[in-house]
Simulated scan of single mutants.
Amino acid sequence: MRDPDHLALQAQAGDEEAYRELFDRFRPAVEGTAHKVAERWRRRDLEADLCQEGFCGLLHAVRNYDPVKGSFQTWAFRHIRWAVKSGLYRFLGLEPREARAVLKAVGILGHTIDDTRPEEIARITGLDVEKVQAILATLRTEPADEAVELVDLKDPGAGDPGLLVLLRVCHGLGADGFKFAVLLVLRDMEYGWDEVAGLLAASSPGAWTRALKAQYPSVLAVFPEAGDWPAVRNTFRTPPPALTPEALRQFFCRLRQRILRAYGASA
């Protein structure tokens, strides 16, 4: 099996067979991301459309790949996720850049979608208040309470400074910060809370370690122990939180506000 980095460079040079091999190899990632995003946002009717968005993201990744940016696999996963979420925002009638700006501002303020004042968001984003109100009104109809996009967790090889700041804030909180970082990654992987509870109770990590190495290198850089699934499970054996979907969700939201306030002060 040829190396994805080499295949991407061959595809850039016009090798159609390399293109086909890359698209076949990353098809499960595209389809899986589209399925999880559609399911999490309760828009299964958009799954096929989101798949097409994901393939467009993969094409963009191939065309813009540079080996100095890290492995193509990490680069491709980032573009697939970004394209799928951008497609979702467009299908919801939002401009992706504006939606992300609003969600980021919500997180910096340490608020939830429901208790955010449009005037505060407008001040941070530079958008007019009416535009912010329209975006918040749309997001309030969707399960976006944990979807704050402060940083892209699937960072390129060089790392995202914002992500490193966020992770270091987590690291300073000890075991709770470690648990939050693990939950943050699982949620970024589009697992629902029922699935998260099941994974944390399972002895087999599934694709966890492989996904961390390929898609979340900065998480491993700050939390090397995250790559050891028994260590992850052992940490979660000591509450809080209890390993139930609702307890995990409440713990995540509670820590999220605390961490995002510290992040906003540090970023």
Rank of each mutant, 00 (worst) to 15 (best):
I108R: 08
Q257F: 06
G192D: 05
T74V: 09
E195D: 13
R258F: 10
C51E: 12
D5L: 06
G177Y: 07
E95N: 11
D128S: 06
A144F: 00
L109R: 14
G93N: 04
K154R: 10
F77S: 03
A18F: 13
I135V: 07
M189S: 02
Q133Y: 09
T125S: 04
P230Q: 14
E195A: 13
P4H: 01
A105T: 15
A265S: 11
L255I: 13
N234L: 15
R63P: 05
L184S: 07
L199D: 02
I135Q: 09
P156L: 07
R140C: 08
D115T: 10
F55K: 11
F77A: 09
L167V: 05
L94H: 02
F77M: 07
K131H: 15
I121K: 02
C253Q: 11
L139C: 00
R25G: 06
A48R: 14
A175D: 15
E47V: 14
P230R: 07
G172L: 05
A242N: 15
F180S: 00
G110M: 04
W75E: 02
A48G: 11
A11W: 03
Q133E: 12
I259P: 03
T138W: 01
L139A: 05
P230K: 05
L7I: 11
P239E: 11
V37R: 02
V68W: 04
E95I: 08
R117S: 07
A247G: 14
S86K: 08
L186A: 13
L260P: 00
A267F: 08
P143C: 06
R187K: 11
Q10E: 03
C170Y: 01
L92Y: 00
A134P: 06
M189I: 09
G32H: 12
V102W: 00
E47N: 15
A147L: 01
L166Y: 07
V182W: 15
L109W: 06
V129W: 12
G159L: 03
H35I: 04
L173P: 01
L7V: 11
V148M: 12
R44T: 13
N64T: 15
A214E: 13
T141C: 01
R27W: 04
